[in-house]
């Protein structure tokens, strides 16, 4: 099976500081892949290299088998991206934003119309679809951005902290949508700090720390037969368990 997302020894150096170091992994169709790590570990830099927003100093990123640097148009046609703080055109309405994205992805107008309305209804945006995005709350912007990322039914979806700022209902909806998308054969890669979401939603997780990938696998594989929670594994691998000791001492 050809992986839909593939990182091959991805490395990025900023001013002699290695932000991401030789990161390699693959996400297969139908998989939800969690990308975890402490703040500043290199999660966003890795995602940005995968989707072509920044160039790797070394290594390559592939989407659906296309090198994002050498064959960017074909690779980008397959991917969708939702940043953690989605900056959207303030003076477009949600419906117009989806039209705009549909135009950029060359979607047939009739298909785009149907899919756009479907997404607006799905994310509870239909009633305010003709309001400017500038008047939306963070959660509504997030849902608009996700709708934009889904309008061309991407094969590989990247989400940076997708549930931040969402109310519990919307967060649940988001998780259901991501799961459904994976069931239809897409590869979903998300970063999150909420380990419970990763534990429940992701088929496999990767943990990155100080730019290096320190663990990849399903939860069972990471547990090595034990019954530790993802939080325990995460803290143990990233050195966060020391903080637990300090907290215990303070108590």
């Amino acid at each position: 099976m050809t992986p839909l997302i593939q990182a091959h020894t991805l490395t990025r150096v900023f001013d002699q500081q290695v932000a991401v170091d030789q990161v390699s992994f693959a996400v297969n169709p139908g998989e939800v892949f969690g990308f975890l790590g402490p703040n500043g570990a290199g999660k966003t830099t890795t995602i940005k290299m995968l989707i072509g927003l920044i160039r790797p100093t070394h290594g390559a990123a592939f989407i659906g088998g296309y090198d994002i640097q050498r064959d960017p148009i074909k690779a980008k046609a397959l991917l969708g991206y939702v940043p953690d703080q989605p900056q959207l055109p303030e003076k477009l309405t949600a419906r117009e934003y989806l039209q705009y994205i549909a135009g950029l992805y060359r979607i047939e107008p009739a298909v785009a119309a149907e899919r756009g309305e479907e997404l607006l209804r799905l994310f509870d945006l239909a009633e305010r679809a003709d309001d400017y995005i500038g008047g939306f709350s963070h959660g509504m912007r997030q849902k608009t951005a996700v709708s934009g990322a889904l309008i061309h039914t991407p094969k590989a979806l990247f989400l940076d902290e997708p549930t931040v700022g969402l109310d519990p209902r919307s967060a649940r909806l988001m998780k259901d949508v991501l799961r459904q998308l994976a069931q239809r054969g897409a590869a979903v890669m998300l970063t999150t700090h909420i380990l419970e979401i990763a534990e429940r939603l992701c088929d496999r997780v990767a943990i990155i720390n100080r730019g290096r990938l320190i663990a990849v696998g399903s939860l069972e594989e990471l547990r090595h037969g034990g019954d530790a929670s993802l939080e325990d594994i995460f803290l143990q691998l990233t050195g966060g368990s020391e903080y637990a000791d300090i907290t215990a001492m303070l108590e």
């Binding site: 309405t93 117009e96 039209q99 400017y132 008047g135």
Partner: peptide, 29 residues
């Protein structure tokens, strides 16, 4: 409550090409 832009489903049909999408978006903004 923002001003309703009055766009309707039929507007979708004006879309398709990337250049058109960009031009229309820039003109609106």
């Amino acid at each position: 409550k923002q001003r309703t832009a009055g766009s309707s489903t039929k507007n979708w049909h004006q879309w398709g090409s990337q250049t058109q999408a960009l031009l229309r978006k820039d003109a609106r903004l």
